[in-house]
Design a protein around this nucleic acid. Structure first.
Lengths: 136, 136, 136, 136
DNA sequence: GTGGTCTAGACCACC
DNA sequence: GTGGTCTAGACCACG
């Protein structure tokens, strides 16, 4: 099974973190359905050209968070979690990011209206670009 | 001179980074005027209960970014930077944070309208709270 | 990997600065190719008999200048920088040194011809010595 | 007596060093004649807006080098030194600067001819500019 | 193994 | 008093 994960070599973010974040997003947003069997640690490591240790950590972390489940000798699956729980997670992640953005604005003395306009501009840009990509 | 910096011991963010970020905000937002003599590294270290080396690093980093200027035997000053440059910096920082927030929303399949409403809600909350504090 | 760096204990120049300057020269002149994995900070510190912190500072400074890229857990690499940028850097460094020399001459009232002859003499000396060394 | 010394606040060079270097140049190049009575420490400090400590250090250093002589209760004079000695000093200072420039060129793999052309270009520029200023 | 952070403490140079 | 350099050594995070 093919998993769409992009690694940015230039980024300062740790490898495991890049992979973990993206995989998490795919799961909680429903782009990978529950019950799905994920690629083996070795496979995924190979396809991302990174160490198995790194992937093992990712799977481990997500299992600890209850998003994955490992069956000995079979592989790693996306766990069945309540829809409410998944939505909760999804909401939390976005909310945190938005709060950070607003806090940043406040910290450098951005006005409420000024910040709102900036947000709306960027929102439009990004979603226009996205729908462009989606149509392809 | 007193500088309002809050340290969060629980945070995963490195100490030096917390201080650096806050000091940077104070400068680029104009809350500390250019030319101001900052507290000595020993003073600030004492008042934040951390090592002088940590403060030294903060001052040095900000000097490398052109926000501070240090003179041996005299002290550390807020650099005189073109207003344009400072505004530019201020804008970049906020824009990056907003972009990250929107990207996060997209990554977990948030709809444009849904994300907009969430943002507006948080924006209102935070600015209401802020104006409450400001009136005190 | 072995890196040819000479330390002069007698010099008034700070240790970190001597190392930094020489490493920078090696990189911008192309004597160390881009992408090369440099020795670990501990290794280099040992081979130069100095503290790891001194080397760490060197690597960090050069990373801030965009000449190196470090990845935690992996090591420190020579960054892939545009050739133009590297040439630009190389030119700037030499130009500054030459300007300083000429300014010094002017400040003590050297005549143009007098300074030129002195330069040509020293140029010849140094390059003759160099080509002698190169042949070895 | 007025002494033409420029202080660069932006420079990383220590204050005392900027002053010392310029004063030294004025003396060894003969722009201030031997026997001249220099301004008092307080006067010079006032006219350069710096600490008397800094000027005291400058006078002290130059006295140690034999370029100045202090008479109790009278003031500080430019010492009478042999012309040979003065020329020797003048030559040394320029030679060192030129050697540094050539060394820098060599360290980043500049070719002999390339470096020569760069030098001649800068030499011409600077002396043309100088003679422009002199004619004013 | 790698780099990243933080500490305490020393000594020097500058003003 | 100020900042600048350097040290030894600890502990953590990453691969």
């Amino acid at each position: 099974m093919w998993i769409p994960i992009q690694i940015d070599d230039q980024s300062a973010e740790p490898l495991y973190y890049q992979i973990e974040t993206q995989l998490k997003s795919l799961i909680v947003s429903g782009q990978i359905e529950e019950g799905t069997l994920l690629p083996s640690i070795r496979e995924l490591a190979a396809s991302l050209s990174c160490s198995v240790i790194t992937i093992r950590r990712v799977y481990q972390d997500l299992e600890n968070e209850g998003l994955l489940r490992t069956k000995q000798g079979t592989g790693t699956f996306v766990a069945k979690v309540g829809t409410g729980e998944r939505d909760e997670y999804r909401r939390t992640v976005v909310q945190t990011a938005v709060e950070t953005a607003v806090d940043t604005g406040i910290s450098v003395q951005y006005g409420e209206e000024e910040l709102k306009q900036l947000f709306l501009k960027i929102l439009k840009q990004k979603y226009d670009k996205k729908s462009g990509r989606d149509r392809e």
